[in-house]
Write a protein that binds this DNA or RNA. Structure first.
Lengths: 149, 149
DNA sequence: TGGATTTGGATGCATATGCATCAATATATA
DNA sequence: TATATATTGATGCATATGCATCCAAATCCA
């Protein structure tokens, strides 16, 4: 557990982190696609926009919240706009900025997607963890990995 | 925790699984790239090849082991071959098959990469988990998500 | 004030991935 | 044996991501 020599257990935790998310994310995305829905990234952005307090979010805020690269936010918003799920407005105080807002159609997609998404999470995560205590432990441990530092 | 209504805790565990791996994988890959090394996917393939018992692995075996799509294996092996890290041989018993083998240069890359990779794992995983017990718990819980079913 | 620097976001180009399809070989079935 | 089917891997095309750079507006500073 020292700086440059992780224990075998740490290496195993790392390998499983990558493999578990790869497998589960793939399974969840496949379920959603089968049901005719767009990629999860679209859901994530729309959800952030719906949660947002004011009139929407700046690209920068989406970037920070979802850990995306700047150019990817730019293009993801392009696609969402083309699909009519979000709108772009200039922001008064900063002539450089875009304020991205969710449209009624975007809100509708969120509502329609959630039942399928929820079922996929239950199927590929909840069912395998078996207990609420395990879910709690996993969430706590993963939280440590996310925390800054 | 029922089939289509995961608890809030399960949903949180899911969200953190995606976010934690995204963040940690990004950090590890960035460390490796800074040190002048190729993507982790290259390391993964080479490691499987070095571990392989016989004279190498079929595409199908790489595919199953690393959970990759068939066409991605095909192209990943192309890139590795072009970089001189692996070789391709026809397989005697099956005229359709390719046997992929690691070259001395590939083995050398594995050896040179490991210290940097190991340090990145320690920095971005080990250090944050803090204890061996936590690493063990995390590995166990993630193992449940990977298990078939 | 006026020019340098920084910041927010867009975009051209290279690379990687997903999807469908194809060619070649192997296997099953009549 | 001859034909149909299944399996292995490659490839053309569309889309997504990374990287570098660019443009425009904002901020800094002499």
């Amino acid at each position: 557990m020292t700086e440059n020599a992780p224990s075998e257990t740490v290496v195993q935790a790392w390998a499983r982190l990558v493999k578990a998310q790869h497998k589960v994310l793939g399974a969840v995305e496949a379920d959603l696609k089968r049901a005719g829905f767009p990629p999860l990234a679209w859901y994530d952005v729309l959800l952030e926009l719906r949660r947002a307090p004011g009139q929407g979010l700046r690209h920068l805020e989406i970037e920070a919240e979802l850990l995306l690269a700047q150019h990817n936010v730019s293009r993801l918003v392009d696609r969402l706009e083309k699909a009519g799920l979000v709108g772009r407005r200039p922001v008064a105080e900063d002539g450089r900025g875009q304020l991205v807002t969710i449209t009624p159609s975007g809100r509708d997609l969120l509502r329609r997607m959630w039942p399928a998404y929820r079922a996929a999470i239950a199927r590929h995560v909840g069912r395998k963890l078996e207990s609420e205590a395990n879910a709690r432990s996993l969430a706590d441990l993963l939280g440590r990995l996310i925390d800054a530092g």
